[in-house]
Design a protein around this nucleic acid. Structure first.
Length: 484
RNA sequence: GGUUCCGUAGCAAAGUGGCUAUGCAGAGGUCUGCAAAACCUUUUACAGCGGUUCGAAUCCGCUCGGAACCUCCA
């Protein structure tokens, strides 16, 4: 099936025509590993995951997916340098070597990040690489030299800047975002003046070294300017090395549209001569209980916070997929509970189909076309789910004949290759819970009372069982007991 | 101040000119001694005010409310 996505470059939904037939290359802006990822971050990575899974399952492409790890920036440097309260015992010893401290600090959170994405159903094995910025410094330096050679960069006060004025004479700046330089907020302009650069709009490619901060030697234009890479240059260089340019799709949160992605386009084209990506896809933010997520409002959650509270990460994944990626998603605890019930309804259908041994048939091909058609058009997960529920509402999975059963299971397997929140298989046997003897004895006494139609006694005994923390449910000719 | 986007039932979330979205919750029912579970049926919408149109949640204008970006926040 052909895929189409909303492209921020064209501001319209466009059909995907991969640069290389049969292969889709995707670069996703990954985390800055200065802390645990929060659920807003997770939404961005989840979007990229569903995008790449859609390309695999529905597009039938061989997917080359890269998600970078930004392991050097102001925050990681600040937090790793002082060795204060931000320094965790799991990071090892704080030393006098800034590079060692930075690596120890960021690798701790990188490991947490890999745990978190696994928890929410993102497979590390789906990525061909998860490059760390600090491992690609030479490639970044090469790119900066290229930009400089072509006249779009200059060295000033120990740093290297992109010369936007020169670039704007050669190409468009503002492909993703209409930039109105005359109307930058005044406060920002004042702040920007603190930098030594020719124009307020010039951005840094290479930041000159400061005392006590990690730095790398860098020879450019015959001089050595020790320092570290600017933020935007990381993605330009790593995407070129790992995917080559141009590649197909670049993903990230809406906040990265400008300046990060705009600058990335300018740099890549200034240095390599081509724009990095055909498609730029941006996910919207999430809010929590209708409010912007922020630490001061007390509604700031990491995935780890939520799973520690007993929430199932798959319910969080499913809940996020019940909204379109390009609209603001309102995260609520009620919403997670509702998502769980909805998810379980589909799961029950899957179990029914698995054990089906009936005579009915169903048009699985039509269902597949309907559901995948929605996903193939800008990954419209809510519409796809509506199709699924509408079908399930009318279906009796347990009554399918052998042929329909196999076709449906094949479809569900594919579907779960994208949603990744279900178990395609047999309904698990009831876990053999150990019910204490006295509870079993109470239940037996109740059954006898019930048989003798002494319902007052039966209800009293059931109340005792409930009070002891067990739930008794009657069945046709007996009962079940479970904890809770 | 500039540039964008959004406001849909109790909650969440699709729909962008006529046609039941969907999920959770609620209500009624089947089953049951009663519950629970399951299943069936079903109520409640388009922020407000104008306009365009045979017809507007959908297009246009204004008002109100919310969000993002405007130099390193997903």
């Amino acid at each position: 099936m052909r895929l189409s996505f909303y492209n921020t470059l064209s501001k319209s939904i466009q059909e995907l025509n991969p640069v290389k037939d049969g292969t889709v290359s995707i670069y996703s802006c990954g985390p800055t590993v200065y802390d645990r990822a929060h659920i807003g971050n997770m939404r961005a990575f989840l979007f990229a995951d569903v995008l790449q899974r859609t390309a695999r399952v529905i597009g039938g492409y061989d997917v080359r997916w890269v998600m970078n790890i930004t392991d050097i920036d102001d925050k990681t440097i600040r937090n790793s340098t002082d060795g204060g309260e931000r320094w965790h015992s799991g990071m090892g010893k704080h030393t006098s070597d800034p590079k060692h401290n930075l690596a120890a600090y960021t690798q701790y959170y990188e490991a947490r990040f890999i745990e978190d994405i696994a928890t929410i159903g993102i497979l590390r094995s789906h990525m061909i690489a998860m490059p760390r910025a600090t491992d690609y410094i030479p490639a970044m330096q090469d790119l900066i030299r290229l930009i400089h050679q072509r006249g779009f960069a200059y060295v000033a006060d120990g740093s290297v800047y992109f010369n936007l004025t020169a670039w704007q004479r050669a190409d468009t700046y503002g492909k993703l975002f209409k930039v109105d330089a005359e109307n930058f907020r005044e406060g920002v302009r004042i702040d920007a003046d603190e930098y030594e650069r020719d124009s307020v709009s010039d951005f840094v490619l290479w930041k000159g070294a400061k005392d006590g901060e990690p730095s790398w030697d860098f020879e450019i234009d015959g001089v050595n300017v020790p320092g570290r890479p600017g933020w935007h240059i990381e993605c330009s260089a790593m995407s070129k090395v790992l995917l080559d340019v141009p590649f197909d799709i670049h993903t990230g949160g809406v906040d990265l549209r400008f300046p990060h992605h705009e600058d990335e386009i300018a740099q890549s084209k200034a240095g390599y001569g081509v724009e990095p990506a055909q498609f730029w896809c941006h996910n919207e933010f999430l809010e929590v209980e209708g409010k912007k997520m922020s630490k001061s409002l007390g509604n700031f959650f990491t995935l780890h916070d939520l799973t520690s509270q007993g929430l199932d990460a798959l319910d969080i994944r499913f809940a996020m997929l019940s909204a379109h990626y390009a609209s603001v998603y309102n995260f609520t605890f009620d919403g997670i509970a509702a998502a769980r019930k909805a998810r379980m309804r589909v799961q029950e259908f899957i179990y029914d189909v698995w054990s089906a041994a009936g005579t009915q048939s169903a048009d699985v091909a039509a269902l597949r076309d309907a559901v995948f058609g929605e996903l193939a058009t800008d990954i419209h997960t809510p519409k796809a789910l509506a199709q699924i529920f509408s079908f399930i509402n009318k279906a009796d999975g347990a009554s399918y004949n052998a042929e329909t059963r196999l076709a449906m299971l094949a479809f569900l397997e594919e579907l779960n290759g994208i949603f990744a929140v279900w178990h395609i298989g047999e309904r698990p046997a009831e876990e053999a819970e150990v019910i204490p003897e006295f509870i079993l004895a109470l239940a037996e006494r109740r059954l006898n009372a019930k048989k003798q139609r002494d319902f007052a006694a039966a209800d009293a005994l059931r109340a005792e069982i409930t009070a002891a923390g067990y739930t008794l449910k009657d069945t046709k000719d007996g009962y079940t007991i479970e904890r809770g």
